[in-house]
Design a protein around this nucleic acid. Structure first.
Lengths: 353, 353
DNA sequence: CTGTTAGCGCGTTCAC
DNA sequence: GTGAACGCGCTAACAG
């Protein structure tokens, strides 16, 4: 009795002694169906182990009840947190997500986007897209679109994101409050909004605190561990003293911490370090990392609600995006006020032998 | 001239002055089409910015050129490595992947699987499924199915996986070669094949080396950091000396390392530790973790090739799955042969104050 | 409430 | 080579 596979609505109808429309109506609940027919239909469905063909349904209705989610990398704890949020959010409604990734290549990304649309998704969510605003705008003509992680200067695409500038300021203020003055910065890939925002916050916050900026305290990272490691080495090799580092993201911080470890510098005893993102691992690194938490899952959830709203013709609730929060753990500590109360000169970091 | 959205094959045909069949043939390349018509069609497609409706195509052909990938968590560096491999592998053929996750709940998993099939995927890849062999077998009647990470005792579903037993043995041998004898083990969730294999390897390998097993040196972890942390605390609290720990996976190792750190025990000076998985972060932990690498991406690629073969009626190439490899980094070190050459008694770990 | 008739957009015979 | 039908499985508009 285990079914082969392809049972159609028609067979169910025949066995139940009704028309296909009746079965269809029963399935969708769009119109009332008499008690006895319902019973017959349910029995029929059971015996045949019928499962509706979503493809056919999609063609007929013009809607597939799916939304496409396009990220840069499926393989990334970072993106995934957002994806998980999208899953959560969609589950509440009747939609399902189908994912695709652009692998940081705009052309590939565009192609995947086309594929998603061709596949009939009712809406799309782009997480940190690399495509230009114009390209996005054009595509948005065809499907409801919401962009996560970047402001898109275009109505017609709904964009959602955090205030990285404020988040970064919190990190810097924390360091400042701990008495640090010589604070280095490991940047993210230049050109990306979020990376630029964090850099800007670095400059502004220090300036406001009366710390004169020193570009030699800034090194370029790449948002991944090897970049953080290299950047820290550059910083150390320049020979300028500093007592704390703000890394543009957690992964960079990990790379930097390894570089420090290699030179026998300890965190936070010799150098304090704060990251950005609060990826899953950050609560368990050695030492646990002080960082700025991005509630990505929540953001993903918001995004899901927004697309669904867009799809159903409502206007998406304006971003109630939570503010970025500083999570203080153990990679930062107050600068011992040993060399007098002078706040303008931190204790220089020890250099390698 | 930017299109609204829904241009159909028919419109393309009309504008090109040919029939829909001709356009269809041009698109699929199934039959030759005359030069001039080709030109007209191409022009028409360009001007209209036509994109085929994959849903309709799927209905008509009965194939959607997609394979469903079902994992436990989208949000997991571990699963994702395999997913990335699947993406790679599928890219080579014409297929695309659509993902879904079961969140460790078999019912949910079954439901998602149904949804994938209903959505018309031509095949499915299940990564570490929680569903029983019987359930899998039943579903496999409908779609080509390949299971990754678990042996399914059933023809009809093709399963692919690593030899965790051998991998774990390598880890233990490494520790043994370094002179360790008192080796603790932090297990994974009991009942899972891979976890059980690793535990078995622990017992066997030590026994073969003439080390008498001591169950008090085994603590239950859960494959996630908090579990590793708790397990290590249990181990330490038991008061038995040990000089090395084998953690059933990297995340457990991280938790364990944090526990050690809290008690001022250093890795590898006081305790050596080896993990399992080699997740991305492991090359950058402090210290970088010695671990057993699972080439998941390769495995994912194999899985992709296997489904495609199954779908196209060929028989999948028998698993050429690479052996697990030990990656020696800095979390393990030779036991200083201080207390004489006696190999049967390691230096006890210091206990907390 | 329910059966009948049309399509949804595209692939695929079948004749020409 | 090419066009005219028909059908994939299901929903929707139209009569009863």
């Amino acid at each position: 009795m285990p079914s082969g596979q392809k049972i159609t609505l028609e067979e169910v109808a025949r066995l139940a002694g009704v028309s296909t429309s009746t079965v269809s109506r029963y399935l969708s609940g769009s119109h009332p169906v008499s008690e006895d027919k319902v019973a017959a239909i349910e029995g029929s469905i059971q015996r045949l182990n019928y499962r509706p063909n979503l493809v056919a349904r999609g063609l007929a209705k013009g809607r597939t009840m799916t939304v496409g989610v396009l990220t840069q990398e499926i393989v990334s704890t970072f993106f995934n947190a957002a994806m998980r949020g999208v899953e959560d959010g969609l589950a509440g409604h009747q939609y399902e997500a189908i994912y695709a990734s652009g692998h940081w290549q705009p052309e590939h990304e565009a192609q995947r986007l086309n594929s998603l649309v061709g596949r009939g998704v009712d809406g799309v969510i782009l997480i940190h897209p690399g495509l230009s605003d114009e390209v996005l705008e054009r595509h948005a003509e065809g499907v409801p679109m919401v962009v996560v992680g970047r402001k898109v200067a275009t109505r017609r695409v709904h964009s959602l994101g955090f205030d990285h500038y404020q988040g970064a300021r919190r990190a810097l203020q924390h360091l400042l409050e701990l008495g640090h003055r010589r604070i280095a910065f490991i940047s993210g890939p230049p050109g990306r909004d979020d990376a630029d925002d964090r850099l800007r916050a670095y400059h502004d916050t220090l300036a406001e605190a009366g710390v004169e900026p020193d570009d030699r305290l800034v090194a370029a990272g790449s948002y991944v561990e090897p970049g953080g490691l290299a950047a820290m080495n550059v910083l150390l090799d320049r020979g300028l003293p500093f007592t704390a580092v703000f890394a543009a993201n957690d992964d960079s911080a990990y790379g930097a911490m390894l570089a420090l470890h290699r030179r026998r510098l300890r965190v936070p005893d010799d150098i304090s370090i704060v990251g950005f993102d609060d990826v899953q691992h950050s609560a368990f690194s050695l030492p646990p990392l002080t960082t700025v938490r991005q509630p990505l899952r929540e953001l993903g959830r918001e995004a899901a609600n927004a697309v669904v709203a867009l799809i159903e013709g409502r206007k998406p609730p304006l971003g109630t995006v939570a503010p970025l929060e500083l999570i203080v753990r153990e990679s930062t500590r107050a600068l011992p006020a040993q060399a007098g109360p002078a706040p303008s000169a931190g204790r220089p970091a020890r250099r390698r032998a």
